[in-house]
């Protein structure tokens, strides 16, 4: 039960974080930029990313090894060998860039600094792109595990 909740919780928080990133991008594109909102959003994004790191990391370190051994023996071994291997390392790029967001938001006058606004937009677009890949890879790994267990149990 706990394993299942943990497995579903981290992509759910990731989707909420992606929505916050979209909100952040829209916020810096507004005519009258609400600096307080940009600061709060950038902090929330960094915080949620740390939460995802802890939740996903705990699940990966504690529970994933059982699934991994089943997946790599199945016809969907690429779900681990390619998608999990890339996902787990691309995540760190996302983590570092999201930790950088509050520094940009708090150390510059976002309402008047066009360069800082563009930097936040660039970070937001990079983060969204990589997070969409990570979410997609997660779905493939999940389906790979499902097929692998069905093979193992002789259901297909």
């Amino acid at each position: 039960m706990f394993e299942g909740i943990l497995l579903l919780l981290h992509p759910a928080i990731a989707v909420i974080t992606m929505l916050l990133i979209v909100w952040l991008i829209v916020s810096v594109k507004c005519q009258n930029i609400n600096e307080a909102r940009v600061k709060k959003l950038s902090l929330a994004i960094a915080f949620f990313m740390l939460v995802i790191w802890v939740l996903a990391g705990y699940w990966y370190v504690v529970f994933y090894s059982t699934d991994k051994s089943v997946i790599i023996q199945s016809s969907w071994s690429f779900a681990h060998k390619f998608f999990m291997e890339t996902k787990e390392h691309i995540f760190f790029v996302v983590l570092i860039l999201s930790l950088y967001l509050p520094i940009v938001a708090f150390k510059n006058n976002i309402a008047t600094n066009k360069t800082a606004q563009n930097l936040i937009m660039t970070l937001g677009i990079i983060l969204l792109t990589l997070m969409l890949y990570i979410d997609g890879a997660g779905a493939i790994i999940s389906h790979g595990a499902e097929i692998a267990y069905m093979h193992k149990d002789g259901l297909v």
Binding site: I96, Y100, N108, N113, K114
Partner: peptide, 28 residues
């Protein structure tokens, strides 16, 4: 309208760029 970034923004921006390379290198 200001166009320059605060020195912490530049410093940590360069650091973020180097860390992404370092992350790949450490993986290899």
């Amino acid at each position: 309208m200001s166009a320059t970034l605060n020195k912490f923004t530049v410093g940590f921006g360069i650091s973020a760029a180097i860390t992404t390379f370092f992350n790949t290198l450490l993986m290899i």
